[in-house]
């Protein structure tokens, strides 16, 4: 009984602390926006419209659709969703390939000897330079963009997976062997969980690379998408419009990263030190 009350008190105090932290966070954020607003109004630069103008442009741009589309405008369906789809598809494929190949290479004793330098070189290539190659191979369109994203996003996942898989503790190897653990269980219940912290570090990096490459590939060769709209707005000197796209990309980056962090926190909750830093 006392335990229950204690727990409730603790939860409540945590909630209060969390709420005040949350409030402080947003206060600082709102303060920053106000400073931005005042500064831009004083500077009166055409390149830097005040945030209120950006927001009203954004509302007009994204939420002017009919009720049947939940008030989302066509822009959302023609540009934002395709962009996101390509970004996530490319990232997902890169993750599957990276973890799969990385596990195989990490388990093999000589595999990395053969491909290590090659991969180090591939990783060092700035992915946008391969856009022309993918463009002639896949044409202007989603194929080229997804290929660019995969090529850029796969290396952090793959190399981190190799590292993680290789670092499985020798006592755990012996333990699993002494139970005659069949390969699927060995990989699924020992090797991959042991490598997960490293893999997640790779996932975070590759997600931000995916977003960057989504934008780059759309800036260069695309008929739709956020990057395409961004560069069109700039060319048409519609600066508030350009800013709405920049802000949207910031929101997307923040949102996707937060989602991944939340997933990581859930999946890796078995790590002892993870519960201290919330």
């Amino acid at each position: 009984m006392t335990q229950v009350t204690e727990r409730a008190t603790r939860l409540r105090s945590q909630a209060v602390a969390g709420l005040s932290g949350f409030a402080r966070t947003w206060l600082v954020f709102i303060g920053a926006v106000v400073v931005w607003e005042v500064a831009t109004r004083l500077a009166e630069s055409v390149f830097f419209p005040p945030p209120t103008e950006i927001v009203s442009t954004a509302l007009q741009l994204w939420f002017s659709g009919p009720a049947s589309q939940l008030f989302l405008s066509d822009v959302v369906f023609d540009h934002i969703l395709p962009s996101l789809g390509r970004c996530l598809a490319g990232w997902a494929i890169a993750v599957i390939l990276g973890v799969g190949l990385g596990t195989a290479l990490g388990r093999s004793r000589t595999g990395m000897d053969y491909v290590g330098p090659l991969f180090a070189f591939f990783r060092a290539i700035p992915p946008p330079t391969l856009v022309p190659v993918f463009m002639v191979l896949f044409g202007l369109g989603p194929g080229m963009q997804v290929a660019t994203i995969i090529f850029g996003a796969i290396w952090p996942v793959l190399l981190n997976t190799v590292d993680g898989v290789r670092a499985v503790d020798s006592v755990k190897v012996d333990t699993a062997r002494s139970f005659r653990t069949p390969t699927p269980y060995w990989i699924g219940m020992v090797v991959l969980p042991a490598a997960l912290p490293k893999i997640f570090a790779g996932l975070r990096l590759s997600l931000s690379i995916s977003l960057i490459l989504m934008v780059v590939s759309e800036l260069i060769g695309s008929l739709n998408g956020i990057g395409h709209e961004l560069i069109s707005a700039q060319r048409a000197f519609e600066f508030p419009l350009m800013w709405t796209w920049i802000v949207l990309l910031g929101i997307l980056g923040f949102g996707l990263n937060s989602l991944l962090l939340a997933a990581e926190r859930r999946v890796l909750r078995w790590q002892p030190n993870r519960n201290n830093d919330g």
Binding site: V28, A32, V215, L219, L230, I246, G250, G253
Partner: peptide, 18 residues
């Protein structure tokens, strides 16, 4: 922290036009 957390995820290439 908040400002940093909001600035960092903006893909740098989005700023190319600006």
């Amino acid at each position: 922290r908040v400002i940093v957390e909001f600035l960092r995820p903006i893909p740098s290439v989005a700023l190319i036009p600006l």
